[in-house]
Simulated scan of single mutants.
Amino acid sequence: MSLYRTELRRLGKRRFTRWATLLGLLVLAAVLAGIFVTNEKIGPEQRARAERKAEQQYQEQARWAEEERAACTQAKTSGQNAPQGRYPEDCAMIQPPDRESIEAKWYLPSTFDFRDRFEETIIPFTGILAMIGFVVGASFVGAEWSTGGMMNLLLWRPKRLTVLLTKLAALLTGAVGLTVVTAALWTVGFWIVGTMRGSTAKMTAGVWQSFGLTGLRGLLLIVVAATLGFAIASLGRHTAMALGGAIGVVAVGQFGVGVLMGMAGAKFIEAWLLPTYAMAWLQKKVILENYDSCNANYYGECKPDTLELTWQHSSILLGVGLVVILGAALINMRRRDIA
Rank of each mutant, 00 (worst) to 15 (best):
65 A>K: 02
66 E>S: 05
66 E>T: 01
67 E>D: 09
68 E>Y: 00
68 E>G: 00
69 R>W: 05
69 R>H: 07
69 R>M: 08
70 A>V: 01
70 A>W: 01
70 A>C: 03
70 A>R: 10
70 A>L: 09
71 A>E: 15
71 A>Q: 11
71 A>F: 06
72 C>E: 14
72 C>V: 02
72 C>P: 05
73 T>N: 12
73 T>C: 03
74 Q>C: 04
74 Q>Y: 03
74 Q>K: 08
74 Q>I: 04
75 A>E: 14
75 A>V: 01
75 A>M: 08
75 A>H: 09
76 K>H: 09
76 K>G: 08
76 K>Y: 13
77 T>D: 15
77 T>N: 13
77 T>E: 15
77 T>G: 00
79 G>L: 06
79 G>D: 11
80 Q>V: 06
80 Q>M: 10
80 Q>A: 15
81 N>E: 15
81 N>H: 07
81 N>I: 06
81 N>M: 01
82 A>H: 06
82 A>C: 03
82 A>F: 11
83 P>I: 01
83 P>A: 01
83 P>C: 02
84 Q>K: 14
84 Q>P: 01
84 Q>I: 08
84 Q>T: 10
84 Q>V: 12
85 G>H: 12
85 G>Y: 09
85 G>L: 12
85 G>P: 05
86 R>E: 15
86 R>Q: 14
86 R>S: 13
88 P>C: 10
88 P>V: 06
89 E>V: 07
89 E>N: 04
89 E>L: 13
90 D>A: 07
90 D>Q: 08
90 D>C: 07
91 C>A: 06
91 C>I: 08
92 A>N: 15
92 A>E: 15
92 A>R: 05
92 A>C: 06
93 M>W: 10
93 M>C: 01
94 I>Y: 11
94 I>H: 11
94 I>P: 05
95 Q>A: 06
96 P>D: 14
96 P>C: 11
96 P>T: 00
96 P>S: 10
96 P>F: 11
96 P>M: 09
96 P>E: 13
97 P>E: 04
98 D>F: 03
100 E>R: 00
100 E>V: 02
101 S>L: 03
102 I>A: 05
102 I>W: 07
102 I>N: 02
102 I>D: 03
103 E>N: 07
103 E>F: 00
104 A>P: 02
104 A>T: 04
104 A>M: 11
104 A>Q: 14
104 A>L: 02
105 K>F: 04
105 K>E: 02
105 K>L: 04
106 W>S: 14
106 W>M: 09
107 Y>P: 05
107 Y>T: 12
107 Y>R: 11
108 L>T: 13
108 L>V: 05
109 P>L: 09
109 P>I: 01
109 P>G: 10
110 S>D: 12
110 S>H: 15
111 T>Y: 09
111 T>A: 13
